[in-house]
Simulated assay, not measured.
Amino acid sequence: MKRVACVYGGSHAQLATLADPALAPYRIQPVHVRELTAVAVADADVVVVSDRVRPDLLIPRSPAVLACLDRGATVVVFGVNAVGDWLPGVREESRPTIFWWWRTGEDHRIRLRAPDHPAWPCFAERAVVWHYHGVLEPPAGAVSLVDLETDTGERDGSLLYIDEASTPGRLLVTTMDPVYHHGSGFMPGATQLLYSAMQWATRS
């Protein structure tokens, strides 16, 4: 069974998510960001960085997460974590969030990519088309599964990508924040993304 660690900051949503009975089979080991060191996650096969961890605490301790990738572990980094400041080769730009597009009739401009990628069996469309907090330009060799388009139909950037090329490990990065919304009990799709990411990260 995969050993899973989750880096969190202690918010109500993070604590509620960690207490979710549906996640109990993963036997997640919580690691508070203030206690994040290479030793604290040395035995983890999977490291999940919860969304919305304070950047002033996460960024100085991010080498511990990068070391996991260097030794071949799987890392999932959820949104609102200033990844452009600590993940190598990643550019991040903020974008206004389109709330409640399914009620207003707006085009969410979220587009699914790479339909033959082996990760897709883990992710339903509902899990990845709901919400975002910016766009990413991943490093060379990474594959974007979900893009945002501009209102003129041009590619704006990635909302979720998988990188199995730039390090010995596997990396999933998204600008969506499922832990916050799952733990807070609102926003369709958040729970599906959380569960789907866990399935992808822990599968053999």
Results as ranks from 00 to 15, higher is better:
Ala67His: 05
Leu160His: 03
Pro60Gly: 09
Arg54Val: 11
Trp200Asp: 12
Phe99His: 12
His117Pro: 09
Val83Met: 01
Tyr180Trp: 11
Pro121Phe: 07
Ala64Asp: 09
Ala38Asp: 14
Val128Ser: 00
Tyr8Gln: 13
Asp163Phe: 00
Ser11His: 10
Gly9Leu: 07
Ser196Asn: 10
Trp102Val: 03
Pro63Ala: 02
Val80Cys: 00
Leu58Pro: 13
Ala140Asp: 14
Ala19Asn: 12
Pro115Ala: 04
Ala24Thr: 15
Val128Trp: 00
His117Asn: 08
Ala38Phe: 02
Tyr161Ala: 07
His108Gln: 11
Pro63Phe: 03
Val46Arg: 12
Ala124Leu: 07
Gln199Val: 10
Leu18Glu: 08
Val143His: 04
Val48Cys: 06
Pro63Tyr: 03
Thr74Cys: 10
Val90Pro: 06
Leu112Arg: 00
Ile98Tyr: 01
Ala40Thr: 07
Trp101Gly: 13
Trp120Tyr: 09
Arg109Glu: 04
Gly157Gln: 05
Val90Asn: 05
Gly10Ile: 08
Asp156Asn: 08
Pro121Met: 07
His131Val: 01
Ala19Met: 09
Asp56Gly: 09
Gly105Ala: 04
Leu171Val: 07
Ser184Lys: 12
Arg3Leu: 05
Thr167Asn: 02
Phe78Pro: 04
Ala197Glu: 03
Gly169Thr: 11
Glu35Gly: 13
Asp147Pro: 04
Glu35Pro: 11
Arg91Ile: 01
Ala140Gln: 15
Asp156Arg: 08
Ala38Tyr: 02
Ala22Thr: 13
Arg61Met: 10
Ala190Glu: 10
His108Asp: 12
Gly10Cys: 10
Tyr180Ser: 11
Met187Trp: 14
Ala5Gly: 13
Ala127Asp: 06
Arg27Ala: 15
Glu92Gln: 10
Val53Ser: 12
Trp130Asp: 02
Pro138Ala: 08
Trp120Gln: 12
Val65Trp: 02
Ile162Asn: 02
Cys6Asn: 03
Pro88Ala: 01
Leu112Lys: 00
Glu35Thr: 09
Asp43Glu: 13
Arg3Phe: 01
Leu66Trp: 07
Ala142Ile: 04
Thr97His: 07
Asp177Met: 09
Ser166Gln: 01
His108Leu: 05
Cys122Pro: 00
Val173Arg: 08
Gly189Arg: 04
Asp151Phe: 04
Asp177Lys: 06
Pro121Cys: 08
His182Lys: 07
Pro139Asn: 07
Ala38Leu: 05
Thr191Asp: 15
Ala119Ile: 01
Arg170Gly: 10
Ala16Leu: 02
Met198Tyr: 13
Gln14Gly: 06
Glu149Asn: 11
Asp151Ala: 14
Pro188Gly: 12
Ile98Phe: 03
Asp20Trp: 14
Asp116Cys: 05
His12Met: 12
Ala19Phe: 08
Thr150His: 03
Ile59Leu: 04
Met187Pro: 06
Gly185Asn: 09
Arg3Glu: 08
Ala73Glu: 03
Trp100Ile: 02
Cys68Ala: 15
Val143Cys: 10
Ala64Gly: 06
Tyr161Glu: 05
Phe123Thr: 00
Ala24Glu: 15
Pro121Arg: 07
Asp147Met: 03
Val7Trp: 03
Asp45Pro: 14
Ala42Val: 13
His108Tyr: 05
Glu137Tyr: 06
Val80Pro: 00
Ala44His: 11
Val173Pro: 08
Ala201Gln: 10
Arg71His: 10
Gln14Glu: 15
Pro63Lys: 03
Ala142Lys: 03
